[in-house]
Amino acid sequence: MIVVENLHKSFDGTPVLKGISTTFEKGKTNLIIGQSGSGKTVFLKSLLGLFTPEEGNIIYNGITYSEMDDDQKRELRQQMGMVFQGSALFDSMSVQENVMFPLKMFSKAPLSEMQDRVDFVLNRVKLTDAHHKFPSEISGGMQKRVAIARAIVNKPQYLFCDEPNSGLDPKTAIIIDNLVQEITQEYDITTVINTHDMNSVMEIGEKIVFLKDGHKAWEGSNKEIFRTDNEAVTNFVYSSELFKKVRQMYIEERN
């Protein structure tokens, strides 16, 4: 579980995060949504420890990040898996080498054991015949799956995804969403996804935090988002005709 308390972050005097407090629960897919420039990426990178907040606390399983020593921070990072927006695969390494990288770095297991684990996770993300291909030789959807495999190979306690669906067709996007949700439940990890894909919100948004201008404007689940009267949320989520109709149908069905 991750607890965020009154998080503030600014760049060159311009505040980007303005006192965000929330909780991301274990075993759930937690979504951060909001318009471009609302502070989603800065928030996610702060959770990852890539940005140091000026004020506020991030508490991982009861331990405050700012109070951890360097060894504890390093240990925590090894419990984190991250899927970057552009996948961030090492382009000089094959798919197999990319996935094996965290194991080679931190595990003392024999190579055969590492290979078994790599085969297992690649199989889990349904990539069985791409071991020796390079990132430039596989599709965007496959790259995302490799990134997910690399993120979970070390059995992390926390999984972070930055726009995992960006640049993917709707069908592949749904496959990736479902894969992330299944992995979250299967391994009972805390997953935080940064997205502006409304399909993801409806499909896997067990907990949704809506950011607007660096503030938390709303939070709830994908069920609650249909019922909310929060204007900022409805303007953002139901900006398309399709989602307006979906909402209308949901309300009519409930009545």
């Binding site: 990178k45 890539l50 990072r77 984190m80 970057f84 552009g86 961030a88 090492f90 382009d91």
Partner: peptide, 13 residues
């Protein structure tokens, strides 16, 4: 630019 350095740092490298 392609966030590969961020990926290394997130892994604790």
């Amino acid at each position: 630019v392609t966030e590969q350095i961020d990926a290394l740092e997130v892994m604790g490298v």
